[in-house]
């Protein structure tokens, strides 16, 4: 059977959700992992985005 954990369920499986499984390649060291909120770099999802943070910081620096 080709359906299952590592493969998309394919066109035969309508009305079913599927989440891409994570593949463990590397992890942060414990200190960095704790700061990030996960040890897996591919699961890091910052809010707001880093670009927005940079723009905001630049704007505030201009005001001073």
């Amino acid at each position: 059977m080709t359906t299952g954990f590592n493969n998309p369920l394919g066109t035969g499986h309508l009305a079913m959700a599927f989440v891409c499984p994570q593949e463990y390649i590397t992890r942060f060291n414990p200190d960095e992992g704790l700061c990030q909120g996960t040890i897996f770099p591919e699961l890091v999802s910052p809010y707001p985005t880093y670009q927005l943070l940079l723009r905001t910081a630049a704007k505030e620096a201009q005001k001073e």
Partner: peptide, 19 residues
Amino acid sequence: RWLREREIVHFQRFGETLN
């Protein structure tokens, strides 16, 4: 921010469990 990141990881695990 830290608590928010945990929700994303949990979503991933529930998704894998659903699969």
